[in-house]
Structure formats: structure tokens, C-alpha cells
């Protein structure tokens, strides 16, 4: 799908190649982005990508952890901006086998470009074998967030980083 470019040199190119809404693509865990040093001086514009899904859309983010120990899937419904929401997480060993007993996880979210995290204190509880539920998350700024899922078990400690684009809508459009 493509929309033509306005026939005027002075006008901005408005390319609706990826018009909203559509579900976020499944993200695979990206390599570490040392956010602390990333963008110190350039003022990052707030603009969310046009592809950011509308609030209420079901999302599934997942992939392999950085050192390759685990596979995880984080499911939630795209929150309204600034609204508390919950996530469901499934974790297995990278092989697909069940986690060893006693595994623990934490789920956090930060905005590397703005060097801040969430202002709330979420709580993660076990929801079944290899399943966790996290309540009390809140993304108060539109734009790129990164969910950090830390898994710890006798198989070792490892982390997944899952980018997510928070849309700007705080009320239903």
C-alpha cells in the first residue's frame, strides 16, 4: 500500500506506507542497547511510529534471551497512555523444555532514549508452570519503551529486551 508524494517541492513527503492501526510485529530480543549513553544531547522528538498499535490491540512480544538460555513471550493489550495495565509472560528454556523449579522473573520497562523507567512499582506473581502475571505497569510517555524480562533459574541468569511503541492515545479515539 502506498500513497503518492504531494506534488510540491516545498511540502513534506507524507508517506502513509504503514498507516495505523496494525498490530505490532512480534519483536525478537534485540542486542543490548546501552541506553545510558545513547542520546544524551539530541532532543529526541516524541513522535510515535505510525505503526504503533491502537490501545486495546492484543500484542505479543517475544524471542530468545541475550545469552540464548531462555525463550519468552510477553502478552498484553496495548495500554492507553498513562493507564495501569498487566502483562502475561511465558518462559521456557531455549530448547522449549520447561524451566527448572524455583525460577524467578521480573518484568520492567524503560525508555532508553529518555533515560527513565516507570514511576510505578509493578508486582509479578506466578500464574502457572512457566507463567507469570505482572500488574501495576504504567507507561506515561508515548514513544519507544523497552521491556526487560530478567529470568533467573538453575540454568542461569539471562535477560530479554523487547521494544514496544506506546501510542499517544490516552482516551479512545
Amino acid at each position: 500500500m502506498r500513497v503518492g508524494v504531494v506534488a510540491c517541492g516545498a511540502c513534506a513527503v507524507l508517506a502513509c506506507t504503514r498507516a495505523a492501526p496494525m498490530p505490532s510485529p512480534t519483536a525478537t530480543a534485540t542486542p543490548a542497547t546501552p541506553g545510558a549513553t545513547a542520546v544524551a544531547d539530541a532532543a529526541p522528538a516524541a513522535s510515535p511510529q505510525p505503526s504503533a498499535a491502537l490501545p486495546g490491540t492484543a500484542v505479543e512480544l517475544g524471542g530468545r534471551s541475550k545469552a540464548g538460555k531462555y525463550t519468552a513471550t510477553l502478552r498484553f493489550s496495548v495500554p492507553k497512555l498513562g493507564e495501569l495495565f498487566s502483562t502475561n509472560l511465558r518462559v521456557t528454556l531455549a530448547s522449549g523444555a520447561a524451566l527448572p523449579d524455583g525460577a524467578t522473573v521480573t518484568v520492567d520497562a524503560t525508555m532508553p532514549e529518555h533515560r527513565h523507567g516507570m514511576m510505578t512499582q509493578p508486582a509479578t506473581t506466578v500464574a502457572g508452570p512457566g507463567l507469570w502475571r505482572t500488574d501495576g505497569m504504567k507507561l506515561h510517555m508515548q514513544g519507544r519503551w523497552v521491556f526487560a524480562v530478567d529470568v533467573s533459574s538453575t540454568a542461569g541468569d539471562d535477560r530479554l529486551e523487547l521494544p514496544f511503541e506506546q501510542p499517544p492515545e490516552a482516551t479512545p479515539p
Binding site: V3, G4, V6, A7, C8, A10, C11, A12, L14, C16, A19, A20, A46, S47, P48, Q49, P50, A52, L81, Q142, P167, P168, E169, A170, P173
Partner: peptide, 28 residues
């Protein structure tokens, strides 16, 4: 609609049409 409008607005160099993400922010 903005796309088609922007053709009319051309000539006012600093009145660039809103991009889709900008429009989405404004409406939010």
C-alpha cells in the same frame, strides 16, 4: 484528506502538512 489539502497549502513554505505520526499526536 490532508494529503490532498497539502497541495493547496503549498507555497506557504512553513505550513508543511502534518505527517501521520504528527496528526496522531495532535488528535491524542
Amino acid at each position: 484528506v490532508l494529503l490532498s489539502l497539502s497541495a493547496a497549502a503549498c507555497g506557504q513554505a512553513n505550513d508543511t502538512p502534518w505527517t501521520a505520526p504528527e496528526l496522531r499526536l495532535i488528535l491524542s
